[in-house]
């Protein structure tokens, strides 16, 4: 899709979502914010996956973002929505840029395991720190908006609008990144690291960039989630939370920057109903779907859209759709 069309679509979608917000019932407003918050984290997971890297520890930054918001309110006395979210951004950026120096050397299974270990360290530290409520975590008061104290409902609505704008900006920037030389370099890296190295660019540079993007989007998502839920706890850094993000990334697919948003929406809606209908079978559904996607649908839900669009455009499915995704089809040997 040409640049201009994309920009218009993004602006239109963001405005539409904001407008719809005025008629949404409270629970749906809440659900939508959670979807946007989680999708932001998943965007980062997908960006890493496009470089052939799977992080089993994005919960780390999700949690860092949330605690940045929580601690900012608790100890620094910051109450403003924008101030708190800025804090989450900075926390993600700083921690990501430091740990990225370490992580950029790792690949494949070692990256997965190392990222998992780092998030479990944070989980361990937070669960034992009494000052921060140990395993229970602590509650967060609703933020003020541009200095004004609002009722809970209005505050939620303000967070909703902010979440829509933030998502729009992230998608726009993300799309520019994926189309840039650095973005393509990520795909190139997944395809063939040797060649990238022999073109004169350090693979570490490419991975570092991806890692930084992923840590920032994850901490923004975490901050947003903290403000919505009004409560945070160490379980945000637990590895099964990171597993959920990977699951959603695979569900949505990684071929388009907006795919994580579709994936998260589908995921959250199914969960909302599945937990009511079959609370003890939810994880069975997840597991089966995960394996099903990996075997039959390596490009995720988004591939349904793109192949449909291709069919509409060409009249037949002649050209092979070459949607980049994490290396699902290739064997190792």
């Amino acid at each position: 899709m040409p640049e201009k069309n994309f920009n218009i679509t993004i602006i239109a979608a963001t405005l539409l979502l904001i407008t719809v917000g005025f008629i949404l019932p409270g629970w749906l407003t809440f659900l939508t914010i959670s979807i946007l918050a989680k999708a932001l984290v998943v965007v980062g997971v997908a960006v890493l996956m496009r470089g052939g890297i799977v992080s089993f520890g994005q919960g780390l930054y999700y949690c860092i973002g949330a605690y940045a918001v929580g601690l900012g309110g608790k100890f620094l006395g910051i109450t403003d929505l924008l101030g708190l979210m800025f804090l989450a951004l900075v926390a993600g950026l700083v921690s990501g840029s430091l740990l990225g120096l370490l992580m950029k050397r790792y690949r494949e299974i070692f990256f997965a395991m190392f990222s998992l270990a780092l998030s479990m360290i944070l989980f361990g530290v937070l669960s034992k720190s009494q000052l921060l409520g140990s395993t229970d975590g602590f509650t967060i008061v609703k933020p003020t908006i541009l200095g004004a104290t609002l009722s809970t409902d209005n505050a939620n609505h303000a967070i909703y609008i902010f979440a829509c704008l933030l998502s729009g900006i992230v998608i726009w920037l993300g799309q520019r990144y994926l189309r840039s030389p650095m973005g393509f370099a990520g795909e190139a890296l997944r395809d063939n690291e040797v060649r990238v190295e022999y073109l004169g660019v350090a693979p570490e540079t490419i991975i570092y960039t991806k890692y930084l993007i992923a840590s920032v989007t994850a901490s923004l998502g975490g901050g947003l989630m903290a403000l919505t839920l009004g409560h945070i706890g160490p379980e945000m850094a637990y590895w099964s939370q990171s597993g959920e993000f990977i699951f959603i990334a695979l569900l949505g697919g990684t071929s388009h920057i907006a795919a994580p948003f579709v994936g998260t929406a589908v995921f959250e809606f199914i969960r909302t109903f599945a937990l009511e209908l079959a609370p003890n079978a939810w994880q069975i559904i997840l597991g089966v779907v995960l394996i099903f996607i990996i075997i039959f649908f390596p490009s995720g839900i988004w591939s349904l859209f793109s192949s449909l669009k291709e069919k509409l455009r060409s009249g037949e499915s002649g050209s092979p759709s070459k949607t980049p995704s994490v290396d699902l089809k290739k064997g190792d040997s």
Binding site: R179, S180, P181
Partner: peptide, 15 residues
């Protein structure tokens, strides 16, 4: 684009 610079651009389009 990769041989052009050790730090490929993040926001300019490749194409």
């Amino acid at each position: 684009s990769l041989t052009a610079s050790r730090w490929p651009s993040v926001l300019q389009p490749l194409r």
